[in-house]
Design a protein around this nucleic acid. Structure first.
Lengths: 342, 342
DNA sequence: AGGCACAATGTTAACGTACTCATTTTGGGT
DNA sequence: ACCCAAAATGAGTACGTTAACATTGTGCCT
């Protein structure tokens, strides 16, 4: 019944033409008012705004961007939504996008299927986005061969470098350097490492940084222990470490495990930091544990997200060359580290 | 230099017409192949796919949705991106949207300016979305008078009910009922409350739930203490509570403060749970503290996000009536509660 | 009064897609 | 060989918007 049209936009939506009819002006004038362009008399503007209000006009995104060729939106492909660091990164992405009047169009990728950059790009390519940020915590099989969609500026949130895409990440290697410098400067040489799960990219970069920092000082690295990021797994590692009389310091790959290590050491009668120093990564305990004492390293995750978006948008300009951006960590010195030389 | 056109879509993008030309078919046939429609010969299909590959064809979102009138996207307006619970909610939103082939278009709202639903709606109205979810942790000034954009199904993530919009939230009132039932069942009557900041909506609903649960049992509620969600503020409250010899239980409005309370009580020589029982909310300490002992209550935040999207999508159908959905909490029983009657 | 600059408004066309309908091709069955 | 149904393909059109251009209206200076 009624004026059903053929190719229909958002059933029941109000178009500029309808507003124009009610306001008694041309559709172009409505467009001018909607976009705040000059050369519209005050009287006309008011009449149009009134008609818009009355009809509930909502500018049609499709029509608009079909004309302009821009979407004013950044795509974000997420593989493990619930993962430490994602919220800060998302905040940064939203914030940087918002600064330039962009929205963020997000899709959760299936992380049960094998990770694939090609697949992620394929899914995002049909979305209203001007640039693309892909966040994956693991390295995909097709990482090296990946070729970004032509015409779609693509940034990868990862520690691995890529020949054709800018990559952005917190410096998961450099954080170890900062912490080892801190410990070595206090005379520590027997520094043990408690890593995350073997498949974790972050953990392996932190481990590599630890190894290299020690070897640069002529120290042999002991076999690392491995947890699963949880405080309880850190406790187990700490219990094992407590039997290792030579260790003077422990570097746990995150704060939760570091806290577990501290508890286990204390439960075993070893004092922290007097007997053993402990450091972690992330500064995730602040505000969540009373009187946090853990010396750790903090990443500016918001900056990570911001940088990704900034680069992705820069990449839409011709002549852009891919680069690798690593957000540096900040040492957060508390009281879990003592001088090993007394 | 060259064939610059006038109203240009995504500069340099490849259209179906161009693919059609290369493949030697009509644009309509390309459309059929792109959408996997039947009645295309295998030979033709291959030829078209080849041309698409060669030119790097990417379906134009604007053209497509201009025709179809659908965006396949859900809008998400966020006021305090970095806030406990948002990551789980975002995960739920992405997940539910993904299930029906939708993306999520997110915008961070300026939380320095006064919160306004009208403003949020205005900003989202021009985006490519079929439905809208607005998340605000505070109550906006225009909450009651708010009228959603006609034709744009809108769901509010809040504990407050609204006459014209479906509202979804974790049951911030009910969680208190669950915890008080648990404590009262173990003989506790002198149950103190440590709330969050005065402006916090969640905290005030939790407080109301506490008050009502006590009064339903004929117990007078003592003056509540107030922290700022941090463990250290919980510690301060706990130190004060330690001097209150009559209290047998403490209900802190989140786990971090609860942990602070526990520490302070123990530091003051009172045993938990033998002398004083302590409960919290959120189950946020799991995995982050070794051997967590805190009895608490957990919210399914993913379900919260999912419900919001599901309702928003349902709201696009005619005849939908707004409702209020409260995601129930789950009691997580650990060892910070003892029987008060010995 | 005449004219001229400029503001205000309208007209037309095009963006890329998918729907409807028309036309051509294909493949049997006689 | 012929015909007809069904498959394959093409032509035309409309979706809502904005840009370029065309036209009309207004006010000011000489």
């Amino acid at each position: 019944m009624g004026d059903e049209k053929d190719g229909r936009a958002a059933a029941g939506a109000v178009s500029m033409a309808q507003v124009a009819q009610v306001a008694g002006v041309s559709q172009q004038t409505v467009s001018r008012v909607a976009n705040g362009l000059p050369n519209v008399s005050e009287r006309t503007r008011e009449r149009v705004l009134l008609a818009m209000e009355e009809l509930g006009f909502r500018p049609n995104f499709a029509g608009r961007s079909l004309r302009s060729g821009r979407y004013n939106s950044v795509g974000l492909a997420l593989y493990n939504v619930e993962q430490f660091g994602n919220l800060g990164t998302i905040k940064g992405v939203l914030s940087a996008a918002g600064d330039v009047g962009c929205a963020v169009t997000t899709v959760e990728m299936d992380d049960r299927a094998p990770l694939s950059l090609a697949e992620a790009t394929r899914r995002m390519a049909g979305l209203p986005i001007d640039a693309l940020v892909i966040s994956m915590s693991l390295r995909s099989d097709d990482f090296e061969d990946f070729v970004p969609q032509p015409g779609l500026s693509t940034v990868l949130l990862t520690m691995y470098e890529h020949p054709r895409c800018t990559t952005v990440d917190s410096d998961q290697y450099g954080c170890s350097a900062v912490l080892m410098e801190h410990l070595a400067g206090r005379g520590h040489r027997e520094i043990r490492f408690v890593g995350g799960p073997a498949y974790s990219v972050d953990s392996s970069f932190r481990e590599a940084g630890w190894r290299d920092a020690l070897s640069a000082r002529g120290i042999d690295a002991a076999e690392p222990l491995r947890g699963d990021w949880t405080a309880d797994s850190g406790y187990e590692a700490g219990a094992a470490l407590a039997r290792d009389a030579t260790a003077t310091a422990v570097y746990a790959a995150n704060d939760q495990m570091a806290l577990g290590v501290v508890e286990a050491l204390r439960d075993a009668g070893r004092r922290v930091p007097e007997d053993v120093s402990v450091v972690g990564v992330d500064d995730s305990l602040r505000d969540t544990v009373p009187h946090v004492c853990l010396t750790t390293v903090r990443f500016d995750l918001v900056a990570r997200g911001r940088a990704a978006v900034e680069q992705a948008l820069l990449g839409t300009a011709p002549g852009y060359r891919p680069r690798a951006i690593r957000i540096p960590p900040t040492l957060v010195e508390r009281s879990s580290v003592a001088d090993a030389r007394r």
